[in-house]
Structure formats: C-alpha cells, structure tokens
C-alpha cells in the first residue's frame, strides 16, 4: 500500500516522464491549483508549456474543525497543465491511474460532463469529472478562456484530488486515517490546520481587518495595473507581484464569505472587483509576453 506521499511521488514521476516541469506549490494562499501563476498566466499566449505541481488549496467555507471525515479546509490538488493538449491526453491520464496501482480493468471509470467556471478569474473550460467506482477523483478541463481571453493553445488541465484518491487506494473511510508517511497519519500532519483555521475562519477572523486587507491588496494591484501602460521597459514590469495581490484578494474574499460577512447582494460586487484586477493582470501579461517574444 502506497502512502500519501508515495502516491504524490509516483504521479509527479509519471508526469515528469511525459515532459512536465515539476514545480513546487505557489507560495501565496490559493483556493485551487488553477489560480497559481503556473496555470493562470502560463496558459495564456502561444508558448507551449507542461507543468505539474501539488498545490495546497484553501477553502475556508469547507472547514469542519477536523470533525468531518471527508471535508477539509485545506486539501491538496495535483495540478497538471498540458499546453497544447496531446491527442492521447485521456489515455495518458488513465495511464497515470495505472501508475499508482489502479487496475482499471477491475474498476469502473466514467467521464461525466462537468464544465468548469471561475467567475473571479474570468476563466472557464469544458470537461468532465472523472468518476472511479462512483467517487469523483479528478476534474478534467479543456481550458477555453482565462482572464476573459481566448486561449491560443487550448491546454488540458488535470486536477487530482489527492486525499480522495489516496483514501480510495488505502481503503480508508476517513481522510484523517490516511497514512501520509510510514508511522504518520494525515491527521498527525494536518489536524491542527483543520481545527485552527476553522476556528479562525468561522469565529475569530476580524471582519473589519479582513476588509481593510482586501482593499489594500486591491488598491496595490490596481495601482500597478495603472502604471503598466506607461511603463517604458515592459519586461521589467512587476506583473507577477501584481498577480499575488489578486490571489490575496481572492483568499480574503473566501474567508470573509466563510465568516458570513458578505451578503448575497454584496457578493456579486466583490466577485466583480476581483475579476477586474485578475482580468487586468491577464491582459497585461499577454501584452508583456508578446513584447518579449517580439524582442527575441
């Protein structure tokens, strides 16, 4: 039986063997692997790219104080981006399941329609949720738009839910019982995160402070975006740091939402605010990359 970390090693090795750069997680908090610059910005433009990384993904509203065996504040996604999509992408994906010891001839795999959309990112795609014996283990998406921009190369995004997949492999009913490494359970490693972040997100986060932080990050990002058109040396312009502020806003929005501080009416407005700076960065990024290519 493979431990959680061995499953991760095998998947990374599998995709490394197929030409993927193996990246480490982005060092700013995100809600999903899609939001990392390695996906959000790299899928833009005409340059081929292949990357895989594990991204701890924070969903403040999904926290359950470590009491629910299936729901987590912070779960781990293995994110794979194949740009452009190879013709045999699904066969490659199925091969990755075999690589972690799932004999597909003995299991039931189905691809069920599930189109993905992230309104805060102006991003959407067409795809499936992949069901293994009735369990959703992967979201598979053909990216169509990101930051409101049509994607030149239609990348495939494969997002594995690592906890679910490992619980399946280890036949565990509770995520906390998964063996992360020999002698260490998932609970040993992550229980404190689940408990303490649930307490913070649901009970103790100071709404006023979070709003202030949101405003500050939004303002800083907007300030940078305002400067970009006039910047003389575009290549030097700090769009990657600007994007980190988008991510901060996104996570603060999610935390405020979990805290119950955003009414349904406000919600649409706040989503628009995040979307505006996300789209702004994406457009500037495409311009910047285009300029860099032209210069080469």
């Amino acid at each position: 039986m493979d431990s959680f970390q061995q499953v991760v090693f095998k998947l990374k090795q599998y995709w490394a063997d197929r030409g993927c750069i193996i990246q480490e997680p982005h060092d700013v908090e995100v809600g999903a692997g899609t939001m990392c610059p390695e996906t959000f910005l790299r899928v833009l433009g005409p340059k081929p790219y292949r990357v895989a990384y594990v991204q701890p993904s924070r969903r403040p509203a999904d926290g359950r104080y470590g009491e629910n065996p299936n729901r987590l504040f912070k779960h781990s996604q293995l994110q794979v981006i194949l740009k452009p999509t190879p013709n045999d992408v699904i066969e490659q994906y199925l091969g990755s399941l075999e690589a972690i010891g799932i004999d597909l001839a003995k299991h039931d795999i189905k691809f069920e329609e599930d189109n993905w959309e992230a309104p805060t990112l102006g991003a959407w795609g067409i795809g499936w949720q992949v069901m293994l014996d009735g369990l959703e283990i992967t979201q598979f998406t053909y990216f169509q738009q990101c930051g409101g921009i049509d994607l030149d190369l239609c990348p495939a995004e494969i997002t594995y839910g690592l906890e679910r997949l490992t619980a399946f492999l280890q036949v565990k009913d509770s995520v906390y019982d998964i063996e992360w490494a020999p002698k260490f359970s998932y609970g040993d490693v992550r229980f404190n995160d689940e408990l303490q972040y649930s307490v913070y997100n649901f009970e103790m986060a100071d709404v006023g402070t979070l709003w202030q932080l949101f405003d500050l990050h939004e303002k800083e990002c907007a300030r940078l975006l305002g400067l970009y058109p006039k910047a003389e040396e575009k290549r030097r312009f700090p769009l990657l740091p600007a994007y980190d502020h988008v991510l901060k806003c996104s996570n603060l929005f999610n935390t405020l939402d979990a805290r119950g501080a955003i009414s349904v009416t406000e919600r649409v407005g706040v989503i628009q605010r995040v979307r505006k700076i996300a789209v702004g960065v994406a457009q500037a990024w495409v311009n910047q990359q285009h300029g860099a290519e032209a210069a080469q």
């Binding site: 003995k106 299991h107 039931d108 293994l132 014996d133 009735g134 369990l135 399946f168 036949v171 009913d173």
Partner: peptide, 9 residues
Amino acid sequence: LVRSGNERV
C-alpha cells in the same frame, strides 16, 4: 472492488 467502492462513497 467496484461494489465496495460504490458502497463506501
């Protein structure tokens, strides 16, 4: 395996 997997879900 498929049966027990579905039952677990």
